[in-house]
């Protein structure tokens, strides 16, 4: 199949960006989207041009490194998959595909399709942990965790930290990311001692990083490659409100 790509090119955040068009021919529908970018980059290199910079690593949907907005949708057209698990069979022969970086004030651009998501790390540093030094732990079975609670915590813990929720949100809010981590830890008995402090600190850091407010439109849940549920935002709001009232 043949595809026309319109790709955002921007040398650095200090320079203006623009779209460039590339033709990719004789593609196999079983190719992944990123493998198509590999092929285009080989062509560009051979033609003496600069290849497209894009983030990727595991290419099996779990590391959260890949990003890209494909035809207006973070991680492309398929539900519950990351860009790296998007295959060309999701497109038609002759399609024109527009590829852009995640755009959000909290994710400054680095180059082409690469953005800086270190704000997520700083939110985690504010409270996304249980304070237990190595060697302090009691026997693992000394803290029973009911299966339902463990399963819910796992549902939240699956977040891969890719940032698609932010890219999809009209307010560029990071609520789903923060809600997933707060819920994962606050649901578990191990997370109770720091529950309130965690909710406050992580939300405050999110605000400081320039992410917008949440109006619960649900666009984040719709694009999340792991299907993290909007209900975790309700849980975060409860924990946050409780922490505000009783601090």
């Amino acid at each position: 199949m043949n595809i026309t790509l319109r790709v955002w090119r921007q040398k650095s955040r200090h320079e203006t960006g623009h779209f460039e068009e590339y033709e990719a021919h004789d593609l196999n529908p079983n190719m992944s989207f990123l493998e198509m970018l590999d092929v285009v980059n080989e062509q560009l290199t051979k033609a003496g041009k600069q290849p497209i910079a894009f983030d990727h690593d595991c290419r099996e949907g779990i590391c959260g490194m890949c990003s890209c907005v494909i035809n207006g949708e973070p991680h492309g057209p398929e539900n519950k998959v990351a860009t790296c698990q998007t295959y060309l069979r999701s497109f038609k022969d002759g399609d024109t595909i527009t590829v852009e970086p995640f755009r959000a004030a909290g994710f400054p651009l680095v180059k082409d399709l690469v953005v800086d998501r270190s704000a997520f790390d700083r939110i985690m540093q504010a409270g996304g942990f249980i304070s237990v030094n190595t060697g302090n732990a009691p026997d693992a079975n000394a803290i029973p965790v009911g299966k339902e609670i463990a399963d819910q915590a796992m549902d939240a813990a699956q977040c891969i930290g890719c940032g698609a929720c932010v890219a999809a949100c009209k307010n560029a809010s990071a609520m789903l990311f923060v809600a997933a981590k707060v819920s994962h830890l606050n649901l578990l008995p191990q997370g109770q001692p720091e529950k309130s402090k965690r909710a406050l600190a992580m939300v405050n850091q999110m605000d400081e990083e320039g992410f917008g407010a949440c109006t619960v439109t649900g666009s984040c849940e719709a694009v999340c490659p792991k299907g993290i549920s909007l209900s975790f935002i309700s849980k975060l709001n409860r924990d946050y409100l409780g922490a505000m009232l009783f601090r």
Partner: peptide, 11 residues
């Protein structure tokens, strides 16, 4: 150690 950190192992 991992359980104390909140790793959601199967239960």
């Amino acid at each position: 150690q991992c359980a104390a950190q909140g790793v959601p192992f199967a239960r």
